[in-house]
Simulated scan of single mutants.
Amino acid sequence: MINFDDLNGFDNLDDLNEELEKRTNAHNNAPIDAFEGLTPVQMGQLENFPNDESPLVLKELPEEELQSCALLVQIRFLMDKMKGGKELKLTKTGALPTKVVKEIYGLGCLKNRWIEDGLTKLSKESDAAEISITRILLEISSLARKKNGKLSLTKKGEKTADDGNSILREILTVLFYKFNWGYFDGHESEDIGQVFPAFSLFLIKKYGSTKRSSYFYAEKYFKAFPQLQEEQDSSFRCYSLRTFERYFRFMGFVDVDKEEIVGPVDIRKTAFFDKLFSLE
């Protein structure tokens, strides 16, 4: 906190403003324990990640290494179907047709636990969040548009269809700032996980070499943003589910070991994550 108690002795307004600016700058550039040593300025930069002034840097990778991003592979599979002005007809509910759903799942990029355990069958898009999010992120991005029940590429989508790094940056931006992270769960909070998701990336970059419980990260996340935490166990489960079991797993950022249906999972960052992100 900035101390203003001893500012009464300034008679000159210019001197007072200069001192205020000095103290504000000192505060904004001082490491904060709750932010894992990041300064308020750096946290502000993370809030707008990915950008060119963030302590966390999104790098460009060769096309073959981008194959480790499961969600990117699935989205590009859909984009390939629409190259050259082609359209993809959706169902009456706006979902992907069954044939395409099974084609995407057949890529083997993302597996659904309930389907793999034989507890449910894959017959429509809504049977697997891993498939639904593929269509949703593409649909709300600047790469595609939906019109008259059909999905097609925009000019930007056509132009970048063969540029995996550009697509990845667009999809990551849409995931962080346009998509509702609570869409696939019943938790009341719409903010947990979605507020400062890049801080979660920073935590993984810092601690993810060792397999750790997702609750280890939850503690640090809610230490930084205590206003988001409600009942501890519910908040921790919500953060773990959204951040690690779903979206970061979908992106290929973490490997997840889950033994129990309810409770924390063990996670470790992937080699792809380490190549994709660096700390400056």
Rank of each mutant, 00 (worst) to 15 (best):
S142E: 15
A128G: 13
N8V: 10
K205Q: 13
L46F: 06
I136P: 07
K159Y: 01
Y183S: 03
G193T: 00
Q67D: 10
S200M: 06
I2R: 12
Y221D: 11
P197M: 05
S68T: 00
H187G: 09
F184E: 02
S240R: 05
F236K: 00
I140W: 04
L72A: 00
A26E: 15
P62M: 07
E158W: 10
D257S: 13
Y105M: 03
L175I: 06
I192L: 00
L90G: 12
K102F: 07
D117C: 12
K146G: 14
F199N: 10
G182D: 12
F49V: 04
K124S: 06
S209D: 15
E219L: 14
V265Y: 01
F202D: 03
L16D: 01
S278A: 15
L56V: 03
S234L: 14
Y215F: 14
N3K: 12
F35A: 03
Q194P: 08
P226M: 04
K89C: 08
S126R: 14
D5H: 12
L138M: 08
G193A: 02
E21M: 00
E65F: 07
L172K: 11
S68W: 07
Q42C: 07
G157C: 06
L110T: 05
D127Y: 04
F77W: 05
G108H: 03
T134V: 15
K86F: 03
K146D: 10
T154S: 07
D117H: 09
K102P: 01
K83D: 08
Y221W: 00
F77N: 02
G149P: 11
S126K: 13
D5Y: 11
V41R: 14
N180D: 15
D255K: 13
A129Q: 12
Q232G: 06
E47Q: 12
N148T: 07
N25C: 09
L72R: 03
Q229N: 10
L276F: 01
T98Y: 08
G252W: 10
L20H: 03
F35V: 07
D163R: 08
L16H: 03
N17Y: 13
T243G: 02
E259F: 11
L20G: 09
N148V: 03
E63N: 15
L90H: 04
D191Y: 13
N51D: 07
D14L: 14
L241M: 08
T39V: 11
T270H: 00
A224V: 03
G263Q: 14
F244L: 00
P97S: 13
Y215R: 02
F250T: 00
E230G: 15
E53T: 14
D191L: 14
F196Y: 15
G193P: 03
S123T: 15
D274L: 02
L72G: 01
S234E: 15
K102S: 06
Q42Y: 04
R23E: 09
D255C: 07
I133M: 04
W114K: 14
V262I: 15
K206N: 11
Q194W: 06
R237I: 05
F236Q: 03
S209N: 15
N148S: 13
E188K: 12
K269Q: 13
K99G: 04
E36Y: 10
L78S: 08
F4W: 09
S240L: 01
A34P: 06
N25V: 09
